[in-house]
Write a protein that binds this DNA or RNA. Structure first.
Lengths: 330, 330
DNA sequence: TTTAGCACTCTCTTTCTTAGACTGCTAGCA
DNA sequence: TGCTAGCAGTCTAAGAAAGAGAGTGCTAAA
């Protein structure tokens, strides 16, 4: 649907004014903010047309208009300008990830915390499976009670897990060295896929510690399916200020892990995406994939009401994901 | 302050009815619930006396009365009866901790989740420092980039951390064996305190890996001061139903880690404690220490409004902490 | 196509009224 | 001295009525 330049300007002003002020848009208000050289009567007729087209709606006759979900979507897709990034406070994201002493989950939690503080909206980070992580070293360590500690060093942080298998120190050492040597620099997904082939080709070499590797692969496959969600709630009280019912809905969504997961699914285009909530279920999300070296490791989403600051949040997220893109392995 | 039996009965009924119904207590209501054999006029005079004593207050003349903070406190300290434990759903707590394959933080998160679901109130768990954890094994593992992974196996779960120190495989192995042999079954606090004395007594034995042990102790001391807080928010929307302002206050508290920490400080008596919020800052807490083998490892608190179900929550917490008390090391 | 003017509509606020709930008080009774 | 019945008084919550104000739609003219 193509709109005239003036209509675009009016719709843009309408959405932004409503986001800012949270009160219905009037012909007079539009005239003040756009400085368009036309009368309020003209604007009224334009607003009337935009309403007929479905971008705006009146709450009641002789009240002002508010944007519809369709209006928000048009704004997001066609009118949203990249705001100047509020990079100041987001510089710390780089520090978090380049320090690399933390566990992957800690790193992800810290990123969510920074974004939530910067935007003052609830923020969720969802770890993808392990398959896209790039291995830098692998260590297996036998523990008491027939368990083995698995330490996976990656260029983006480390992971520890225990698996149930009885193994000698020697077997663990051998398996660690073997796996590190063969798969360093590769993704865990690649490793899991290829491990069986390696086994067949050189069964003599790994026969001794094959049991360990098998349990390991089995454990990794299982863990790979678990999604780790970290939810930060800075600003959740602010959600209740304008519209209590809408705020409650969002708080409920934040308690529901399944719903959060599906909200954070990315289309795969690798950039910031915006989903505008519809009237019934008025949750909007600004989300982005967290990619390192071209592999998606996680996704991050900022959740809020339909009337949220899409421009500011999108630019904040852009800074975060851009600063993560070019981490180099050592 | 000693009250007559009848006054106790009336106050107890008043608090419980208010907690249940969330509407002011009237002489008629008390008569219906207590089945006391006296007239409403008599009850009115009793209520009047209780008000003069500070246990109740009228919101306005000719309206009913509501409990004051003093009233709640008297109820909690003198009248609260142990409800029958809702042990059904809390059985899983035992499973969580006895499985022991999880990291300590995971275990603590799971306990918080169970309690929050069972009570339908926000629940916070705060890990104490490491000093009371009982060691079952100790492993040090050299990593790339001059780091060492520390794995501390305890009878209540494992902990992993990295420290910055350059160390050989041999030194790490020696240090692991030395520390496990000398301190297995002791607390980490005991280990840290005594390690210097051991060093002096047998400097020949540990000279080689003294650098590793020193970094380790230094790292543990630092980590010991960090409090890990896990906050679960099941039921946070329910808080907003009765009294929005009060609910917002609680949500704000849940976002403030310092405030949460100080709210969870225990008196040290080793049992469930109840703190009733006062009028200005109306957050109440039902909290309990999580002790294993007589050592406090963490504390757990359920946070809610002044008008919360103290009896039900206290009994739920009691089940949880009792089921944790008698975990045995292997 | 745009504009000025005007009547119309609808909400929000204020004021007033009424019904109802509960109390405090007083006088009488055990 | 403690308890009770009855009654007047008080306060809230809810509903109705009225007026101000904001903003629109429509019409006629430029």
């Amino acid at each position: 649907m193509e709109l005239s330049e003036r209509k675009k300007k009016i719709l843009c002003a309408a959405v932004e004014e409503y986001i800012r002020e949270c009160s219905p848009i009037t012909s007079g208000g539009i005239k003040d903010t756009t400085l368009l050289d036309c009368s309020t009567a003209t604007l009224r007729s334009e607003l009337n047309t935009l309403e007929a087209m479905g971008f705006l709606k009146q709450l009641h006759t002789s009240g002002g208009r508010v944007p519809t979900a369709q209006g928000y979507r048009y704004y997001v897709e066609n009118l949203l300008e990249e705001g100047s990034a509020t990079s100041g406070q987001l510089d710390e994201v780089k520090d978090i990830i380049t320090s690399r002493t933390s566990s992957l989950n800690d790193i992800v939690s810290k990123i969510a915390k920074v974004v939530s503080k910067a935007t003052n909206y609830p923020t969720v980070v969802m770890m993808d499976g392990y398959e896209n992580l790039v291995l830098s070293e692998f260590k297996l360590l036998p523990l008491i009670e027939d368990k083995v500690m698995v330490l996976i060093g990656t260029i983006t942080g480390y992971i520890t897990e225990t698996i149930d298998v009885k193994a000698s120190v020697q077997d663990c050492d051998d398996a660690s060295k073997y796996l590190t040597n063969h798969f360093k620099g590769e993704t865990l997904g690649y490793m899991i896929e290829n491990i069986e082939q390696f086994e067949k080709g050189m069964h003599g070499e790994i026969a001794a510690f094959q049991a360990v590797v098998n349990s390991l692969i089995h454990g990794l496959k299982r863990l790979n399916k678990q999604r780790y969600l970290d939810v930060r709630r800075e600003g959740s009280v602010k959600l209740l200020e304008d519209n209590i019912e809408e705020g409650k809905k969002i708080l409920n969504v934040l308690e529901n892990e399944n719903e959060l997961s599906s909200m954070l699914e990315m289309s795969g285009k690798g950039d910031v995406e915006v989903t505008v909530g519809d009237e019934n279920d008025s949750c909007s999300v600004v989300k982005a994939p967290i990619c390192v070296n071209g592999k998606q490791l996680a996704s991050i989403g900022v959740i809020g009401p339909q009337r949220m600051d899409y421009a500011g949040i999108a630019s904040a997220l852009k800074v975060v994901i851009d600063s993560l893109k070019d981490i180099k392995g050592e």
